[in-house]
Measured scan of single mutants.
Amino acid sequence: MGFKLLSKLLVYLTASIMAIASPLAFSVDSSGEYPTVSEIPVGEVRLYQIADGVWSHIATQSFDGAVYPSNGLIVRDGDELLLIDTAWGAKNTAALLAEIEKQIGLPVTRAVSTHFHDDRVGGVDVLRAAGVATYASPSTRRLAEVEGNEIPTHSLEGLSSSGDAVRFGPVELFYPGAAHSTDNLIVYVPSASVLYGGCAIYELSRTSAGNVADADLAEWPTSIERIQQHYPEAQFVIPGHGLPGGLDLLKHTTNVVKAHTNRSVVE
């Protein structure tokens, strides 16, 4: 069995187990497998329904001669939608809004960016022009300005110390501490036991640490421990890039980060 097929099978099995364990909360999309990078042309966006009122959005972007996937989250909030992270750029984010209108038909009224990198804030200006209120932590807003990236308009308070959590509509926002970046936030959907790890969490097929220019490698494993301790009931975990899975993604990420750190020390 090929690795790609095995990865998709694991996603399907995880979703099936969740649907059985929580039949009222989960209505997993039966329309197909989780979209992969090879299936999404740059400039297009796919939506994948995880649970009743919960979707991931998947886009792709060219970077350094390669094409990478990027995940975000959409959560229903009454007759409105909360968006977590842009679709990595203005063109993708405009396509995301169009796809949401086509498939869901509810307005996106608020959006949260989970850290300051372009795959999370690139497209904020498109959201703002569409009347979406954009939010991020003060740290993310400051770092985005320093980096020359787009800056969300509103500040999220109460997320300055490791372990801080605040309720934001249908989700809980959690600051686990520094990891992929010093400002990275985690998003949890309690009604569906869905954990969105953003770039602080890796997919299972990833074996290298990737972009760690703004990471705190020493603190990252401790931050992941905080996530595990705060959300032990999480059933569906979405990484910032690639295929979702279960809580095993947290341990896998820790292993990859520690291996990278150990290699760096040896070198």
Rank of each mutant, 00 (worst) to 15 (best):
E39A: 11
V266Q: 11
G72V: 00
H115D: 01
Y12N: 05
E39V: 07
E39G: 08
S27Y: 03
P69D: 04
P190M: 03
T140Q: 02
R110C: 04
L143Q: 12
E99A: 14
S62I: 15
T114M: 02
A59M: 03
A19Y: 15
D248T: 11
V171C: 15
N149T: 05
T254G: 11
R120Q: 10
G32A: 09
E219K: 03
N255C: 03
D52H: 03
S161E: 13
E233K: 12
I74M: 10
E99W: 07
A25T: 08
S70D: 10
Y202P: 06
A87Y: 01
H230E: 05
H260L: 04
V237C: 06
S181C: 09
F174P: 01
V28Q: 07
S208P: 10
Y34R: 11
G32E: 11
G53E: 10
V67G: 07
V54S: 10
E101Y: 07
S160R: 10
I84V: 11
N262W: 06
V121M: 04
L96N: 08
K102A: 12
Q103M: 03
Y202I: 08
D248S: 05
L156E: 02
T36Y: 15
V189I: 07
T14E: 14
A90L: 04
D164G: 06
E145S: 07
A95F: 02
G65A: 10
S16P: 10
L247C: 15
G2R: 03
E39P: 15
S191F: 14
Y12P: 15
S30R: 09
D214V: 06
R226Q: 02
I58G: 11
L106R: 07
G65L: 11
Y34G: 10
N262S: 12
A165M: 15
L10D: 05
D77T: 06
Y231E: 02
H117I: 00
L6T: 11
L185N: 15
M1G: 06
Q235W: 05
A218M: 02
T254L: 10
V187N: 01
D118I: 10
E39K: 13
H57V: 10
V28A: 11
I151C: 03
V265G: 12
T114E: 00
E39T: 09
Y48M: 06
I224M: 10
E172H: 03
G163I: 04
T86K: 01
T36A: 05
R46G: 11
D52C: 03
V187L: 12
L96R: 01
S264V: 13
P23R: 09
A87C: 14
N149M: 15
V37G: 05
G53V: 11
P232G: 08
A66F: 13
R46A: 11
L81M: 07
Q228F: 02
E147P: 10
D29R: 10
N184M: 01
G105P: 12
P232A: 05
D119E: 01
E219I: 02
S113V: 07
G197W: 00
A215L: 10
Y231L: 03
T140R: 01
T114A: 01
E150T: 12
H252I: 08
Q49F: 08
G197C: 06
L247W: 06
S162W: 10
A25R: 12
G240E: 01
G198A: 03
A130D: 06
G240Q: 01
R128W: 07
F26W: 06
G2Y: 09
P170Y: 03
H117G: 00
D77Y: 07
V124H: 09
